[in-house]
Design a protein around this nucleic acid. Structure first.
Length: 414
DNA sequence: TCTGGGGTCCTAGGACCC
DNA sequence: TCTGGGGTCCTAGGACCC
């Protein structure tokens, strides 16, 4: 197998920079300390993407803008434009398909491309990767890193080497020299919690991990131990998934609220606006759901959640919402709430949906109302129909979401 | 006005059944 | 009237990814 991993450098920031240059702006955001940052008034104030100059000041993705500014006082912060980023992402995805029909969209800014069967058509993979990289820059104006290897894990690790605008290889024979000296935290699927556990048994580099006894790792880290041991040794046999190969597992929508919620009525209103979007997206996906969950983050940043399995799957907004409210009431500890999330899972295709349950008539009536509302909202926008409860309430009727993501988000298993 | 949002997978523990 | 013990389902929480 020959796999490319294509990774857009500082994706949101690059796309924003290119857009601005194309619209007459003189300054290239990529050349100065800058970030794409959330709205601080709404308590969304974190770094979503950073330029390379900002990185040199120690600015990190995910950290509060306040903290980033302390490291870099003249940091520019630009609000995100998700629709633009989605368009750029789609354009890249389209272009990649010219090189192989086997392209897996891994996230908004990452794709895997299975080059195995393109090899005899287009020739040497490394040369092709270089021309692809150059072509993306010429046609789109943003840069990518491309990792080339014999499996997805190594291709992904390779694309993470020196940036930007580079092609790197990481074939099995190169693993010892190029990957083993790196800190173990650089390995895909090794996060902070795992780093702490590994440090306790004396593992600090990927090479250390690769040479550790598998039995010991399994004893300490269960199945995750085996996974990262295999990765450290460059082993991965997962295929490049195309199209809808991976089924949806659930649909969720959550939001940090601009103020702390301290009463049940307000909480229910926000939960309704979250549920509206979840149910719309569920219906659009053609699934019904049997598990409903509510998650709360309180003002101390403590998180907890509560879920239940319905007696029958549903895609009806009202049925989900009733359950959401019950779950919230059952688990809310009465402290100020910072963030709320609604999630449905245990999905079944719509066709399997029940017809002979109690109250089936009421259920199908609600279903047809929902579908009508969906159509109108699709045509005229989310605010064409607003529930009476939201009128003059100061709350948005449909809350959350980062643009219409009609692509699959990543899965943690390659 | 310090700390987002959307995913997936795994594990532990309790309930329940035979 | 000292105790079992698998198997499955369900829920909560944690870990990881971008």
């Amino acid at each position: 197998m020959i796999v490319f991993h294509i990774d857009v450098n500082s994706a949101y920031l690059s796309w924003e920079a290119v857009y601005r240059l194309q619209h007459g702006e003189k300054l290239d955001l990529r050349t100065v300390p800058s970030v794409i940052g959330g709205n601080e008034k709404n308590r969304h104030g974190i770094v979503l993407a950073k330029s390379i100059p900002a990185k040199k000041y120690g600015v990190r993705t995910g950290e509060p803008l306040v903290k980033a500014r302390k490291k870099c006082p003249n940091l520019m912060s630009i609000p995100p434009r998700y629709e633009l980023y989605m368009k750029a992402s789609n354009a890249l995805f389209q272009l990649l398909q010219e090189y192989s029909p086997f392209v897996q969209r891994f996230s908004v800014d990452e794709c895997f491309l299975d080059y195995t069967r393109s090899n005899h058509l287009y020739g040497d993979p490394v040369q092709v990767a270089h021309s692809l990289r150059e072509r993306i820059y010429q046609e789109f104006g943003f840069t990518v890193n491309i990792g080339v290897s014999s499996n997805k894990l190594l291709a992904k690790m390779a694309s993470d080497f020196q940036k930007p605008n580079q092609v790197h290889t990481l074939f099995l024979a190169e693993v010892a020299q190029k990957m083993w000296p790196l800190p173990v935290s650089d390995l895909f699927m090794v996060g902070p919690a795992t780093v702490r556990k590994l440090l306790k048994i004396g593992i600090t580099t990927i090479g250390d991990l690769a040479h550790t006894d598998l039995g010991l790792l399994k004893a300490q880290l269960k199945s995750h131990g085996e996974l990262i041991w295999r990765y450290a040794n460059g082993l991965d046999d997962s295929p490049v998934h195309v199209g809808d190969y991976l089924p949806h597992r659930g649909v969720g929508n959550g939001s940090t609220i601009a103020f702390d919620v301290t009463d049940k009525r307000t909480a229910h209103k926000i939960l309704l606006s979250l549920t509206e979007k979840v149910a719309m997206r569920l219906r659009a996906s053609g699934y019904t759901a049997q598990v409903v969950a509510v998650a709360i983050k309180n003002s101390s940043f403590l998180r907890y959640s509560h879920q239940t399995k319905l007696s029958a799957p549903t895609d009806v907004t009202n049925e989900i919402y009733q359950t959401v409210c019950r779950l919230f009431d059952e688990c809310w500890q009465k402290e100020p709430v910072r963030h709320l999330r609604v999630r449905v899972s245990d999905l079944k295709p719509c066709a399997e949906s029940q017809l002979l349950i109690m109250g089936a008539k009421q259920h199908s009536k609600l279903q047809s109302i929902d579908r009508t509302v969906d159509k109108l909202r699709k045509k005229y926008g989310a605010n064409v129909l607003i529930r009476g409860i939201f009128l003059h309430s100061g709350h948005k009727a449909v809350l959350g979401g980062v643009g219409e993501d009609d692509y699959k988000m990543m899965s943690s298993i390659l």
